[in-house]
Every structure is written in structure tokens, then in C-alpha cells.
Design a protein around this nucleic acid. Sequence first.
DNA 1: CGGTACATTGAGGCAAGTCAAGTTGAGTGG
DNA 2: CCACTCAACTTGACTTGCCTCAATGTACCG
Lengths: 216, 216
Amino acid sequence: MQGFKTGELKAEPGSEILAEGASSTQLYTALSGMGVRYKTVEDGRRQVVGFVLPGDFVGLQSGIMGEMQHSVEATTTMTLCAFNRSNIWSLFKSQPSRAFDLTHLAAREEQLLGEALVTIGQMSGVARVSWALYRFYQRLSALELKKNGRVPLPYRQQDLADAVGLSLVHTNKTLTRLREAGVATWQDDALVVHKENELAQLAGMDPGEISVRPLI
Amino acid sequence: MQGFKTGELKAEPGSEILAEGASSTQLYTALSGMGVRYKTVEDGRRQVVGFVLPGDFVGLQSGIMGEMQHSVEATTTMTLCAFNRSNIWSLFKSQPSRAFDLTHLAAREEQLLGEALVTIGQMSGVARVSWALYRFYQRLSALELKKNGRVPLPYRQQDLADAVGLSLVHTNKTLTRLREAGVATWQDDALVVHKENELAQLAGMDPGEISVRPLI
DNA sequence: CGGTACATTGAGGCAAGTCAAGTTGAGTGG
DNA sequence: CCACTCAACTTGACTTGCCTCAATGTACCG
């Protein structure tokens, strides 16, 4: 797998790594830093379809389908490991088990989106925000990024709002309520979950439902 | 590919083909009839994450990840072509190009979900309903199921409501408005689009953005 | 010190939800 | 052939969660 690496990319905060509709020849694995995946609509609104954390694959869609369906932007400074798109095909020919892992990744992305769809389509505002926070908490904890009960969360409230389909104002008020209820606090780029079970319940999830994922 | 076929399944209306959380050893390709993919939440609500039309693959997730993330139910009588799950792995080993197609399918599913997420997360009620109707119109037209401008659409309004994240009542009123505006009519299990461009515009889409997909 | 970017708070309005009756049509059984 | 049931579709009245508008607060930075 190492042989496929063609370089490293360093992305500054706010810079676009991949653009919707573009067919990049490069694919990446995030090594450090965080980013957002999003789609924009004509009227300027945007929907965040996912958050890129260390270890995540970026650009699989363009690798498989030839074109990105969403943009990816760096939120913090990111370093990414770059591969060449043409290597994907040779991967399928020479390393079927790696190819299978890749498909597994695509299926997992689909799973994540499905869960988001349920949350956004059926749940109330509090539940949506709780869900997002809890998901962050789980993923970042699994990445060993938890220190003293705090996980780094360098996003803006607008990013969260665009992810859960609520207005910025309403998202803000919901976060305030969660904080005042002593459930979870997100301030200064860090998230603290005070009552994990309560948060999970608000989110309509079972605590501790984490799942493995193959690394590429 | 034919060699992998292990049988045919006939599903009656209302019957469950695959259950969320189950790890079926069977995968299917829909030959005829229509169905829904959905996830349920504890309180009884459900989110329709997709509609199964002829030609669609069913059970890819359980084939790749070992467990379905959503249920699949037949809406009309369906016939499905069954494969054995273990064949997927041999496919990756012996037919890399077929394996690639499979991954392509997974990526396309992801694309569809992403589009749904944008629609449900950012668009108004009319836009969501219009989007769903237009998507149906496109997909069913591509399947050559259009006759005299009518495409078959044997779902219930509740299915549509659960798909776009609106209440049944509101979905009904929106459909009525679309009908009275002379844009599209969905009655008696058939959809007629009177003003395609207007529908597309309401849906926030460009008319005629269709895409190819490999058949398995 | 202005300027910019993000977070916060209050007020008022509307889209969409809920509740509650009907209506229609397709079985089904007496 | 008519009463009855049941599932889906309609429609109206009322309620509310969320949105928009509009300030204000608070850092950080050149």
C-alpha cells in the first residue's frame, strides 16, 4: 500500500481540497487536521454531508465514479497522504482484498449518510444537534483525541447547523440549552460531554454503538 | 455473471425482503416490481432511504459489511434474482472489473443519499416533494416504463412522506397544490408530469440530468 | 482603534406538525 | 345485494418548532 503514495498535501484552513463536479486525479487519506464535506445549492445554502477526521479517506467518489459529488474543505490545517487515481484500478487487479476494503469504505460512507438522513428527516432540533455532538464524541474518542474528557472540535456553529439542517440561530439556541442542561458543552473548539447517556438518549441512539473500519 | 445466480425470489406486497440488522447470505437484483428501503426509529417513525426499482441491487451492504443498515420491503409483487453472498468475494478475486462495477454501485448509492440529504436538509416542502416526483419520473422513464406520459408509481403517500421527511398531511396538501398548479399529478398509482421544466425548477434541479449506471 | 469573523439574544412570523373529521373504494360476509 | 370493515386519501382548524430579521457582544488582527 505504501507504494501507492505519491506525495503529501498540506491544506490551509479554508482551502478547498476537492471541488464538487471536479475529477481530480488525486485521492487522499487525512493524516491530521479536520475538514468538511459539503454540497452547495444555487441559492447559496449548503448542506454539510460529513466531517473529515484523521484517518478518513477523501475523494473515493472521484476515484470510482470519475467525479466528486461534494466539495471538501479544510477547516484546520490538514496534512493528507496523496495517491494516484489510476492506482485504484491496479489495486482491483492485483490486490482483491484491498479492493474489498475500499468497497467496504464506500459502504460505510453510505451507512453514515443513511443515519444522517434518518436524523435530519425524522428528529427534532435537539435530537439532531445531540446526534451530531454524540457522533463527534464517539469518533474523536476512538481516535484517542480525548483528553480530560474534552475532545477537540474546531468547527464553527454554522458548520454544525448546515450539517443538521437547522438555522444558525436555532442551532445556537439549542447548544445553549444543552449546555444549561448540563448535558454537553461545546466552546473554544472543544467539546465536553458531561452526561453521555443523556446525550445519547436525546440523540435517539444507544450509548457505545461504535464500529470498526478498515484503514487504507 | 449468470453463473452466480442461485435462484429467484418472489415477494408479495408488504413482505420484508431484508431486515435491518440482519446478515442475509442472499443478495438480490430486482427484476420486476417495486419496493422501499427504510430505517425505523424507536418511536415508530420511519425514514424511507430509497425506492427499489427494477434493475436495482438489493443487499449490497450486507454483502460487503455483513449486516443490513436498512430494511427492504416489497410494495408490489416483486421478482428478484438471488445471488450467494460468498460469491462476492470470489468476484473480487477473479473478476476485478466486475468488482469495480460493484464498488461503483456502492458509490452511486452514496451519491443518491447525498442528494437526498441536501434536499431534506435544505429545501422547502414543495421542493422536497417535487424533487422526489421528478426523480421518480426520470428513473422510471429511463426504464422505459413511460406510456402516454404516465409512469407507474404504486407507492402510498405515506411512503413519499417518510422519504422526504414531511408529515403525511402536509405531503398530501403539497401534492394537491402541485396538481392544481398543473405541474404534476399522482393518482391511481400513476404519475403524470405536465410541466417537466417547472417541476425540475421547483425541485431545484436541472432538467435532464441523468446518469448511467452499470448493471449487475 | 476600525475591521472582520463568529457567537449570542430577542422579537415576530410562517411553514409544517398535530388533531380530528370525513370521503372514497376495495374487500368480505351475512 | 347491502351492511360492514379497513386502508388510503382529503380537508379544515389549531398549534408550534423553527426561521428570519436585527441587534449586540466578543474576540482577534492589521
